[in-house]
């Protein structure tokens, strides 16, 4: 009889599992929301930790410049070559500057910068906070009545929000130079046409779109990466100790990269 009962209950188990998973996801989103609230509030709490902000600006911003330089240069050069190849078919090489700059300013600049920062600084932030959580350093701060958000999480937030737009601008400039090297120096496009095409086609609106994107991507990357580290012990399936930190760090980079790509489409669709 009981066997018959358990057999007839089998399909319902899936419903139960789905319900449990939904509850977990909602709870997780709630915790991330509360985390974001405290992190933003921490930016306004006194005393302000200016030195920590400078340290994080140097790490997230300054430290990422080499990576951004090479990514931008190679992306720009590839765009220059590919653009020349496509435009040459229509005899429209003069549009190369316009094509390269618009692609970089509106799409590749913000997206690739955010992905690079997520991989380099985001992973580091997540692992650092995760280790501080599992080794009770965050509990120790709370026990000393020191707000961990004001002390070291909010400065990371502020630094990322300031760094991302600046790094994106740096990416755009280096990318456009890369396109110039490939298009003008290697493929022989006219230098004046490259820059004048750019000047005529790029509007303030395009630049604004790039800045808004970079700001929102910075927000997403720092929120997800620091939040996952902070909540390492609450994440289902993460395990314990060093393993939990490694799993959560991987998750943070994957989640922030996917969010950047999804939001890129949404923002383009809404703001273009």
């Amino acid at each position: 009889m009981s066997q018959t009962n358990s057999e007839s209950m089998a399909p319902l188990r899936w419903v139960g599992a789905l319900g449990a998973h939904t509850l977990y996801v909602l709870g997780d989103l709630g915790r991330m929301g509360v985390f974001l609230f405290w992190a933003v509030l921490g930016v306004f709490k006194r005393p302000f930790r200016f030195k920590e902000l400078l340290k994080q600006l140097s790490f997230i911003g300054g430290g990422s410049m080499t990576l951004i330089f090479f990514t931008a240069l190679s992306s720009g050069m590839v765009l220059g070559l590919q653009g020349y190849y496509s435009l040459h078919k229509f005899g429209a090489e003069g549009m190369l500057g316009s094509a390269v700059s618009l692609t970089l300013i509106m799409e590749l600049g913000p997206v690739l910068t955010a992905l690079m920062v997520a991989g380099r600084a985001g992973s580091a932030m997540c692992a650092e906070i995760g280790i501080m959580r599992i080794s009770e350093q965050i509990d120790a701060l709370e026990c000393m009545a020191i707000d961990p958000f004001r002390y070291f999480i909010s400065p990371k937030f502020l630094a990322a929000l300031l760094s991302l737009p600046l790094l994106t601008a740096f990416f755009d400039v280096i990318g456009i130079l890369g396109g110039y090297i490939a298009g003008v120096h290697l493929m022989g496009v006219n230098s004046g046409a490259y820059f004048s095409g750019m000047e005529q086609s790029v509007t303030n609106h395009d630049i604004q779109l790039g800045v808004i994107k970079s700001f929102i991507f910075g927000w997403l990357v720092v929120w997800i990466c620091t939040g996952r580290g902070y909540l390492v012990q609450k994440i289902r399936g993460a395990g314990f100790g060093a393993e939990s930190v490694s799993k959560v760090t991987t998750q943070a980079v994957v989640l922030s990269s996917i969010s950047v790509l999804v939001f890129d489409y949404l923002l383009t669709a809404v703001l273009l």
Binding site: I131, M132, S135, E136, Q137, D139, A140, E142, C143, M144, A145, D147
Partner: peptide, 19 residues
């Protein structure tokens, strides 16, 4: 709670020193 915690000192299991 922050005010109350000023009354406490805590020695953690793993010492919880800031590394």
């Amino acid at each position: 709670l922050q005010e109350q915690r000023m009354r406490f000192g805590v020695l953690f299991q793993g010492s919880a020193l800031f590394d």
